[in-house]
Amino acid sequence: MSKPLDLSLPTALILIDNQSAFTHPDNLSDWGTGRSNPLYEVNIQALLLAFRSARTASSTFMEVIHIFHSSVTPGSPLHPSHPNNGIRPLDFATPASDGSEPVFWKSVNSSFIGTDLEAHLREKNIRQIIVAGLTTDHCVSTTVRMAANLGVVDRMLDEGPVKIKSDGTHVKDVRVQKGRIVLVPDATATFGKGGFDAETVHAVSVASLDGEFCEAIGAEEVVKMLRKH
């Protein structure tokens, strides 16, 4: 059993690249061979519904954040000019119509490059993020790694960034109150590549993140935690 979510902390659900380019039959060969996690769509929907319900009932700040990809490569299924309109959000992960769910557009793997996501998380004092979406080994992995490296959910208890001397020692001791990064592996998916099937690529990607950059908690467990809030 995983450690429960701490929903007394300001929390964001970050959904990455839930866009039609990844499901359109004409585009599947662009991504690889087959796709992992047949329950991805069901689990994303359950996660989003549970988070929205918890947010409505919570006195703590909770926010859904949507990250979408707009490629700069002509011909890419995620380029704005593509005839299949691949940048369109999938129906089950469309941002709320009332504008209460921020949307950030990126053009690279990291959700933090070329966007205001980092500034937004710090402004809102987000201390816990829950990450899901596409694809496990590319944009999801890169975003989780950068979130951890940037310390976007951490709180510095001493002023100033970490400063390191030329010999590798620290200029001064730094105290950090750690936030929490949660990855929902079965609400993410990827494709086979390099001779490895999709489930293997997915599993190895999650294993590389879990315990080092984030905590991996299954969708059913996260949904139960949200419903108890």
Rank of each mutant, 00 (worst) to 15 (best):
L134H: 05
D154G: 11
D17K: 00
V206L: 05
T33V: 15
V171F: 12
L121K: 01
F22T: 10
I181W: 01
F104E: 02
R127D: 03
V174Q: 14
D98N: 15
D158E: 15
V206C: 11
A132D: 09
L226W: 12
D167T: 01
V171Q: 13
V171K: 13
G32D: 01
S141Q: 10
L13W: 12
L134C: 05
P161V: 07
V42Y: 12
K178E: 14
V64A: 08
V144M: 00
Q19Y: 01
E212D: 10
S71N: 06
F104L: 07
N37W: 07
G151N: 07
S2M: 11
A21W: 00
H120Q: 08
D30P: 01
H24N: 14
A12Y: 03
G218I: 04
L9K: 15
R145L: 04
G86H: 03
K193P: 01
D6F: 02
H202N: 11
P80Q: 04
I14E: 00
D116M: 04
L121D: 05
K172P: 04
F196I: 01
A21S: 10
K178W: 00
S36H: 04
S111T: 00
D186A: 04
H82E: 04
S166G: 14
I113C: 05
L9F: 00
L15Y: 01
D30G: 05
N43R: 06
R122D: 03
L7G: 10
D17E: 09
D167M: 00
V201F: 05
L90I: 09
G179A: 08
A189R: 13
D116C: 00
H229W: 06
F104K: 11
A219K: 06
H202S: 12
V108M: 04
F61H: 15
D137P: 04
K178G: 11
P77R: 03
L90Y: 00
P83E: 06
G114V: 07
F191C: 06
A207V: 01
T94A: 12
P102E: 05
S59R: 14
K163W: 04
H202I: 11
T60D: 07
G34Y: 10
E215R: 09
S58Y: 02
Q19P: 06
K106M: 02
V206T: 03
W31C: 11
L226N: 11
T135N: 14
K165L: 14
E123C: 03
